[in-house]
Simulated scan of single mutants.
Amino acid sequence: MKVISTPQEFNQDDLYVDLGAITGQRLFLKCEGFNFAGSVKLKAAAAMVEAAERDGLLTADSVLVESSSGNLGVALSMIAAAKGLRFVCVTDSRCNLQTRLLMEALGSQVVVVTDPSPTGGLLGARIDHVRALCASDDRYVWLNQYTNPNNQLAHYRSTAPAIARAFPDLDVLFVGAGTTGTLMGCARFFRAWHRPVRVVAVDTEGSATFGQAPGRRMIPGLGAAMRPPLLDTSFVDDVVHVGERDTIRTCHRLARHGFVFGGSTGTVVSGATRWLARQERPLTAVAIAPDLGERYLETVYQTNWVQDLYGDDVLEPRTAGVASPSA
Rank of each mutant, 00 (worst) to 15 (best):
K30A: 06
H155D: 12
S93H: 05
V17G: 04
G121C: 13
R26V: 14
D138K: 10
G56Y: 07
S117Q: 06
A75Q: 12
L29W: 13
M103W: 07
R94G: 01
I79S: 02
S77N: 13
Q98Y: 13
D115N: 12
V110N: 04
S77H: 09
G84T: 11
V112Q: 07
F28Y: 14
N151I: 12
Y16M: 00
G24T: 04
N35P: 06
A52Q: 13
Q145N: 01
V112S: 06
T59V: 04
R94A: 04
G24Y: 00
D55W: 13
D115S: 09
E104A: 06
P116W: 09
L29V: 09
L57C: 09
V141G: 00
L42C: 07
Y16H: 11
L15V: 14
K43S: 12
A45L: 09
N150C: 13
A125N: 02
I79C: 03
I22C: 13
P118F: 11
L19M: 06
A82N: 12
A46N: 05
Q109V: 13
D115V: 15
A45R: 12
A135V: 05
L153D: 15
L15E: 12
A46M: 06
Q109A: 09
L42F: 04
V40C: 08
L42G: 05
G73Y: 06
V49D: 14
L72Q: 11
G33H: 10
A154T: 05
V88Y: 10
L72P: 15
S67A: 15
E50G: 00
A47L: 12
M48P: 02
D137R: 08
G84K: 01
G20S: 14
N71R: 07
V90Y: 03
N144L: 01
E104V: 07
K30W: 01
R54D: 08
K43D: 08
L122T: 06
T114D: 15
A45V: 11
L27T: 08
H155N: 08
L19E: 02
V130E: 00
A37N: 05
T147W: 10
L15C: 13
A154R: 05
